[in-house]
Structures are given as C-alpha cells and as structure tokens.
C-alpha cells in the first residue's frame, strides 16, 4: 500500500503569500518612516540669570576664546591654541575652575567649530561656558 503523504500536506491550508505581502508592506513602511538620528540639545540661555539672588556680583575671572577660522584653532589673548590640545585646556581649567569661559566667533566660523570648542571646554571640566555670546551680532556692543 503506498503511503499517502499528500493528505497531510493539504492540511497547511493557509497560503503564506498574502502574509508575506503584508509583512513586506509593513517592513517598507517602517524602513522608510523610522529615523535613527537621536537629537540632543545644547542649552544656550540668552541672558544671564536674574541678579535677585543673594550672591553679590563677584568679579569673575573671564576667558574669551575667539574662533577666527574653521581651521581647528582658537585664539585666547593673541595665543593660538589647537582645539584638540586637551592638556592646555585641562591645565587652564584646573587653575581657574570657577572662571567664566566665553566663546566668540568671527564671521565665517561655522556652528560645528563653535560646538567642538564648547565640547572641549566641558570635557575638561569647565563649569560655566557661555556659548550664546558667540551669537551676538557684531554690530552690537561686545562686553567680554
């Protein structure tokens, strides 16, 4: 007597093709709509916090970094410093841990350079970095 294998096969009645169609459409939808860019935010408060706190306006040590070009260098008091020169920034910040670090940029400097400098300062332990100062228009009065 021959084996009757066909009968068992016929029990898998659900065809897979429509399922695959639907799954492919879902896959395409999720592939096209999903984004993997994780946006982060850097706070750039535009004015100093209100002065109604108990702390008197202590004369704070200030360092103004000026970016002149997108060449990976920054100027501090006529001194040219590489943005990747971690040792310089670490020494400066360790000696002046309470200082205010102000960023400034000349025309043509891009946002990436500015944020790279801010990153380096924060990475080496600077507590207060004023990024928003760089966004002051050059027609306006600068008070570094």
């Amino acid at each position: 007597m021959p084996l009757n294998l066909e009968a068992k096969r016929k029990k898998t009645a659900i065809s897979l093709t429509p399922l695959i169609d639907v799954v492919f459409i879902l896959l395409l939808f999720f592939m096209l709509t999903s984004s993997f860019v994780a946006w982060r935010v850097v706070d750039t408060p535009l004015s100093a916090p209100s002065t109604d706190q108990a702390t008197p306006p202590v004369e704070q040590v200030k360092f103004t970094f000026v970016l002149k070009q997108n060449d990976g260098f920054v100027w501090l008091d006529q001194q040219r410093i590489g943005l990747q020169d971690g040792e310089f920034f670490r020494d400066l910040i360790q000696q002046n841990s309470e200082a205010l670090f102000i960023l400034d940029a000349e025309a043509g400097v891009n946002l990436q350079s500015l944020l790279t400098l801010a990153d380096q300062l924060k990475l080496q332990g600077a507590k207060t970095v004023s990024i928003a100062n760089a966004f002051k228009e050059h027609g306006a009065a600068h008070n570094p």
Partner: peptide
C-alpha cells in the same frame, strides 16, 4: 556660519525669550 545664525538669536532675544537650545 555663526554670522548667518546670529540674526535668529537676535530675533529671539528681541521677543524676550531666554530658554533657547541648539539641536545637536
């Protein structure tokens, strides 16, 4: 470049808002 971006910040400053963040 920053000088293209600073007019936007000037506008925000004019509107009196201070809480601003840059997306990275």
């Amino acid at each position: 470049s920053i000088d293209q971006l600073s007019p936007v910040f000037t506008q925000i400053r004019q509107s009196g808002l201070t809480k601003v963040s840059v997306a990275t």
